[in-house]
């Protein structure tokens, strides 16, 4: 994490970073201001996002008993993207938020749009989750994603190039947009989501044997399912709301964790994924910032490009996927 704070377009000496963290406020130079106002919130955001996505991904994989499930299987990210598309492509051109406004309060509007979109999808799917079985739910989530994706495509088709640019840059994912004041909402939301997952660890273990066995062991299956999916989607939705859709991490971190600890027990996997997810996100952000280079890379490209080979290698070596999910 310290490395993440130190390194960036302009490397900052380790000592300066420590000074500014420890509250040497009077130093007042530009470096410690960068550290305090940009680097620290960015690193915190990266860690929390990574942790949230990893835990959400783990929960989804267990509930759906599917190794390819990610935090967004229920479509919260497509809901978020529709919200953002409405803000950037529909509202902004019609003058609700002026070009100038986009720079100042624009990001907040984007956050509101995407969080709102994610929340609507989440509520819709949780209502459905009580009525249908998990497989149908998976398919419904997928269909919903396609449907919303289609609406977004239509919006994009009728939009101006410069609006599209800002929509695209949102869709690449970014940890840098979260300021201290936003962090005061973001961090508690993530922490609440993570804390709410703790009492569900036992239920997650029971779900490993399938819903019928879970039911036979005294688990209230529907309530448990809704609680876990709700928790996971909240985590995924909040991250998407503030940082854009960040792919890959949520699938990969739990697999990497299983590979490391060689267990399926959530008592180990939940805290493990949390730490690994957070760490991987910091690493990805570090690479995206590309120390010493002016340009930054899209975060999504980095997570997939650098993370995928690691996971592929781990899986080929262990064949854990088959072990965990059978088949």
């Amino acid at each position: 994490m310290l490395a993440n704070i130190c390194l960036g377009s302009a490397p900052i000496p380790f000592g300066t970073v420590i000074d500014s963290i420890l509250g040497a406020k009077d130093s007042g130079d530009i470096m410690s201001e960068i550290v305090r106002e940009f680097r620290i919130p960015r690193a915190l955001t990266a860690f929390l996002s990574g942790a949230a996505l990893a835990v959400a991904g783990l929960a989804m994989q267990t509930v759906f008993r599917n190794p390819l499930a990610d935090p967004f299987v229920l479509g919260v990210n497509s809901g978020a993207s529709l919200g953002v598309a409405i803000v950037l492509l529909v509202l902004a051109p019609t003058g609700v938020a002026l070009t100038q406004g986009l720079h100042l309060s624009g990001h907040l509007l984007v956050v509101l749009g995407s969080t709102g979109g994610a929340a609507i999808v989440l509520v819709l799917l949780l209502v459905l989750a009580q009525r249908v079985d998990v497989m149908s739910l998976l398919i419904l989530g997928l269909m919903l994603s396609y449907g919303i994706g289609a609406i977004v495509s239509i919006l994009m088709f009728y939009s101006m190039a410069e609006r599209l640019q800002s929509f695209f840059s949102w869709s690449f994912g970014n940890f840098s947009g979260v300021t201290w004041s936003q962090l005061s909402v973001f961090a508690p939301a993530i922490l609440i989501g993570l804390a709410a997952m703790a009492p569900l660890i036992k239920t997650l273990d029971a779900f490993l044997l399938g819903e019928r066995y879970a039911q036979s062991m005294g688990v209230r299956v529907k309530q448990g399912r809704v609680a876990i999916l709700g928790c996971a989607s909240l985590l995924a939705g909040v991250v998407t709301g503030f940082c854009g859709p960040i792919g890959f991490l949520g699938i990969a971190a739990p697999h990497f964790c299983r590979f490391l600890f060689k267990t399926s027990q959530h008592r180990i996997l939940v805290p493990g994924s949390l730490l690994i997810g957070g760490f991987v996100a910091l690493m990805a952000d570090l690479i995206a910032k590309a120390p010493g280079v002016e340009a930054t890379l899209p975060l999504n490209a980095v997570t997939a490009l650098f993370g995928a080979p690691v996971i592929v290698a781990a899986l080929l070596k262990q064949r854990n996927l088959r072990k965990v999910f059978g088949g």
Partner: peptide, 12 residues
């Protein structure tokens, strides 16, 4: 109970 459901509980 002991059910016929497949138990894909690898890594256990």
């Amino acid at each position: 109970v002991v059910l016929t459901d497949a138990v894909p509980a690898g890594l256990f």
